[in-house]
Design a protein around this nucleic acid. Sequence first.
RNA 1: GCGGGAGUAGCUCAGUGGUAGAGCAUCAGCUUCCCAAGCUGAGGGUCGCGGGUUCGAUCCCCGUUUCCCGCUCCA
Length: 517
Amino acid sequence: MAQEDIFKKIIAHAKEYGFVFQSSEIYDGLSAVYDYGPNGVELKNNIRRYWWDSMVKLHENIVGIDAAIFMHPRTWEASGHVGAFNDPLIDNKDSKKRYRADVLIEEYMEKLEQKIEKEVSKAAKRFGDSFDEAMFRQTNPRVKANQDKIDAIRNRMVKALESENLEDLRQIIIDAEIVCPVSGTKNWTEARQFNLMFDTKLGSVSEDASKIYLRPETAQGIFVNYLNVQKTGRMKLPFGIAQIGKAFRNEIVARQFIFRMREFEQMEMQFFVRPGEELKWYEYWREARMKWHKALGMGDEKYRFHEHDKLAHYANAAVDVEFNFPFGFREVEGIHSRTDFDLGSHEKFSGRKIQYFDPETNESYVPYVVETSIGLDRMFLSVFANAYQEEELTNDKGQKDTRVVLNIPPALAPVKLAVLPLVKKDGLPDIAREIIHNLKFDYNCQYDEKDSIGKRYRRQDAIGTPYCITIDHQTKEDNTVTIRDRDTMKQERLKIEELAGILEKKVGFRNILDSLQ
RNA sequence: GCGGGAGUAGCUCAGUGGUAGAGCAUCAGCUUCCCAAGCUGAGGGUCGCGGGUUCGAUCCCCGUUUCCCGCUCCA
């Protein structure tokens, strides 16, 4: 089956079994916004818990916070989002390609720059030692003309960007006769402003209301709380702050189901370290995070690192953990060495001293940061998509049969145990209810007496329940039940008292967390 | 945003210018069964939304919205 067909089935399965619904579906839905259903929220909560426990419970020096989605607008100036997330875009009508207008102009100026450099190096060769570059630049008419042109365009562009004059930005492109690199034509649309941050008004009286943004990343909530956490928690470097929360981006194109949503959830941990030690810690977290992923047992070959060739303005090292989705290897997590960019920038914008006094060296400095940032919804999709299996079976009569099973790592499964009375009489349902009553405080259990036993097993397979126990007539005689394994479909008989211990071992978080240490 | 395809029951889909169908699923009853598909019955849809053409539109036309596939950005 083609990969996209499988992906379609996965999306259909997610809806049919209550994992993911489109937002506001009865009103035709909202583009790139999704809701999690009853089984979806369980799976999501379990992923969240696996992450949180592995960070906050297992590390003495990592603590959690939960910062608000609304933040002071200056935060986003300091972080660079107001600049970087406000792109003037322009389309070429012939090639249908979209460009950032300012980048298009920058590239044009670079070309002029290259022309000048060529002239200069040619002249340098000709005149040898006696060549005076400064003089040549000032006097050579061709070089001077190009240099003047560059200066004029740059001035005009800076002005246009500052005043957000999109018409003039477009006019620069027209006047300079910049062509589309693909189609080679000058057939441009209007330039439009795209703001990737959502904004709203704070204050109920409209005249006094001020514009604030929904956070486009959770990291800044950690950075602005660095001092609070460090001082109140008496934290010593190196230490980390973890946070799980929603972030919002008004994506131009949002697609591939829940892979790219406008409202999404991040699980981030910012690790503060002594300057100069950031690359050591970067290496540490890179390996630690990969181990965390692989510990789920979804297959080591499903993961790979993707090194960044060009780094963001705030980073001095960066790598992605990529997962093999039905549509190819894509990023689920990023590990970035963010230097002192964020804290340093907040220091500048806020005027507060955001530093750490190091008792070992008797020095004060702005800590460096190593970030691990994982998309919770992407993690959900990786688990869900990877779990979806269609198995071909043959029964005792030799008939073919297809079984749809979600091979979810047991610790993450929405329902851990289904308790099924073989028949709904002879007191078997009562025994089933009693077993559930004893286990439901620790494990999500489900009761089902409807339809044949085989059908009930298949229903549980479809939502990834790792174990089904069946109450039969023998149960009444010796207090034993059969336990059926989702993956092997094999059954074993065991005593009811043994159930809790078995579940702890097979579906609990303890073993998997222990393997990380 | 641009181009291509699609939207009919919870799911997968059929169908016709004249009041809407199947299979699966759901619910009730029978059956009491250890790996889907036993029997009987029931519920469920202004055919994505809005407008137009028509005596009459789920079907034809226009707009819109959502999803899928390409082109660009990102967690």
